[in-house]
């Protein structure tokens, strides 16, 4: 009886949401102008001209306000200090669609990722425009993979 009630309950928000067939509501936090330009018209983009590490800090603030990470804060096969760009997808607090991890796990992932910045100290800063564009392209490609997954 209880089961029946839960299944049909208008307060079972998750099921209601799935029936609506809606998308996860998220924002893209980025310091990459190419990501901002690509998604500005179709998604909520929070662009800031700050360092990649500071982007993780901003994500941490969002997570402490109830947001949840949708993509991994570490790159694959690029060390944290090797690229000046980072883009993160954060599910908004008011959204109730499923996520892979919890708010607490999101916070822990960010702490781990920030730790990686301390581990790799061979920082390379560049003003080479062509090189900066290449870093932007790769960050855009990785972010686009996450956006495609979030939007399907």
């Amino acid at each position: 009886m209880l089961y029946t009630f839960m299944w049909h309950s208008p307060f079972n928000f998750r099921n209601c949401y799935l029936f609506r067939g809606g998308r996860v509501k998220y924002r893209i936090l980025t310091n990459n102008p190419m990501v901002a330009e690509e998604f500005n018209l179709t998604h909520e983009v929070a662009y800031s001209d700050i360092s990649a590490k500071e982007i993780l800090g901003r994500a941490s603030e969002g997570i402490s306000n109830g947001e949840i990470l949708l993509n991994h804060p570490l790159y694959g096969s690029l060390k944290p200090n090797e690229t000046p760009y980072r883009s993160l997808l954060l599910r908004k607090k008011e959204d109730i669609s499923f996520t892979a991890i919890t708010n607490e796990e999101s916070a822990a992932l960010i702490v781990k990722a920030l730790g990686a910045y301390e581990k790799f100290t061979d920082k390379k800063e560049t003003t080479d425009t062509k090189l900066l564009k290449d870093y932007q392209v790769v960050d855009l490609s990785l972010t686009a993979s996450a956006v495609a997954a979030a939007d399907r």
Partner: peptide, 10 residues
């Protein structure tokens, strides 16, 4: 695979 999206990893 090794995707960037956390739900894909899961």
């Amino acid at each position: 695979n090794e995707n960037v999206y956390l739900a894909d990893k899961e």
